[in-house]
């Protein structure tokens, strides 16, 4: 069971604020999955390597060659607020 304090801490780590309704729903879902995950306890996983790369491809490289990229206008087209050709955010340094 996940405790309210812990749930709210995770929300804050994930930069999320939960409504009361979300909190209730998410707690239920959390507990369901965590409960199922307890099934792993019955397995001996001591000598099993974690599987991180499904096709065993690693270090895929390509030549470092200059290529065409996007212009500023295209890249800024989706920015919610912009100023002087930059993305605008609130003041970071006092």
């Amino acid at each position: 069971m996940i405790e309210k304090k812990e749930l709210l801490n995770i929300a804050s780590l994930a930069k999320l604020k939960l409504s009361e309704e979300d909190e209730e729903k998410i707690t239920k879902k959390f507990n369901l999955v965590l409960n199922y995950a307890r099934m792993f306890d019955e397995l001996d996983l001591e000598n099993v390597e974690p599987l991180v790369n499904i096709n065993n491809l690693s270090n895929v490289m390509r030549e470092d060659e200059p290529m065409e990229s996007y212009d500023r206008e295209t890249l800024l087209a989706n920015a919610p607020e912009k100023l002087y050709g930059c993305i605008k955010v609130s003041k970071i340094i006092e």
Partner: peptide, 30 residues
Amino acid sequence: VKFRIMLGTYSLSSKCYDTHYNRALKVRRL
């Protein structure tokens, strides 16, 4: 979406990384 993000954040947290994320990767191999 919030639920999935949070479940992931939890599973990757230092407290749960071994018991959840890493174990799940092991079972994935099996």
